[in-house]
Nucleic acid binder design. Structure first.
Lengths: 194, 194
DNA sequence: TTTTGTTGATTGACGAGTCAATAAACTTCG
DNA sequence: CGAAGTTTATTGACTCGTCAATCAACAAAA
């Protein structure tokens, strides 16, 4: 029953299964067989399409980053005014799609992966760079020269909130996270206005 | 040459070696042999004293948390005034002893461990609880009812700064991290005063 | 001789990656 | 059109390495 053009479908299924499994197990110690099984195929096929487990991990990482990036871009598109743009970034960061147990767990593990796999480190650096430049450009009209510093602290807080989410029990509360980050922002801006 | 009373010495050496190795490799995929070798003994001896690799990890985790706790307590002891207490916590968090490559790397990996090992999760929860209550009690006189919220955002920022440190290159800059966190604090407090 | 320290060798399991084989779909060209 | 050949899909079985954990044995102190 070999239908043609399976490659993208299989790859997509594997990428998604990788994220789910990493999130479920809570570490990168997932076997290719586990992932393949969840994606509905044999481990040999997974190797056939990705060549190695590491490539699968990297593809999964690119996937979550792509989704995140798309969401941010979408939110920025309809945001109005500088403060609206910052809010948009925050809301996208903690949206229901990104701020999910398995996805957050995957993020954490990608961070670990970045310690030993240069390509993973590079990808994470790209994410950080984009986040930072988005924040800075939105903050510039609001905070002038202080935009960089505020972007750094906001960025650290976003990452910290992600990190803490993995320890929490119960469903993720994106709204609360946004509220916390927003409060920080308002405080910084208020001080700047003084 | 079996000298008596080796147990605590060996255990201590293993715990320290565990931290170094996890930091060096950047993941929990360190073999007991690697750790034992760095600690100057055979892997069999490591098993003899700890029983399992997991126990070794947990002991290492307790160790970094104990050191951190001691440093915070020490700093709090000599701190003056509420704001001094907050500053003390921050300075201890990013001190040269705690804010080290290998230690930060170990923290990150303990966070991952907490995903799958309940005892690790419990330990991390203890750490978070202590940090939070220290911050809240220091902030109470400064911020009243807003103490909790500020403690949460400060805590998230501290964790975020740790997280980001693992991606940086070059030696850790604890002072810069403290400065960032302090700026956030001042902003929050300034707003409260308005 | 019992307890404590110590290790080389071994076991047993597990898992990434490879291979050979099978089959369906597509292409070519007489 | 249709046979021969090619590419794509797919997997069960296998190899090969690694590693946590155990064991048997030895040494020295008590």
């Amino acid at each position: 029953m070999p239908k043609l053009g399976m490659e993208p479908i299989r790859k997509d299924a594997l990428v998604k299964a990788t994220i789910v499994e990493i999130g479920r197990v809570g570490s990168l110690d997932v076997t290719v067989s586990q992932i393949a099984k969840r994606a509905g195929m044999s481990s040999a096929l997974a190797h056939h399409y990705f060549g190695s487990k590491e490539e699968m991990f990297l593809a999964a990482m690119r996937h979550v980053m792509t989704l995140y990036g798309a969401e941010v871009r979408g939110a920025l598109g309809v945001a109005e005014g500088p403060e609206g743009r910052v809010r948009a970034i925050l809301r996208a960061s903690f949206s229901a799609g990104n701020f999910r147990r398995d996805v957050v767990g995957a993020w954490l593990n990608f961070w670990v992966l970045a310690q030993s796999v240069p390509e993973a480190k590079r990808l994470l650096a790209v994410y950080q760079g984009r986040l930072r430049s988005n924040l800075v450009s939105a903050l510039r009209p609001l905070a002038g020269a202080r935009a960089e510093g505020i972007a750094d602290s906001l960025g650290a807080m976003i990452d910290g909130l992600y990190l803490r989410e993995v320890l929490k029990s119960g469903p993720p509360d994106g709204a609360a996270a946004v509220a916390l980050a927003l409060r920080h922002l308002e405080a910084e801006l208020a001080r700047g206005a003084v």
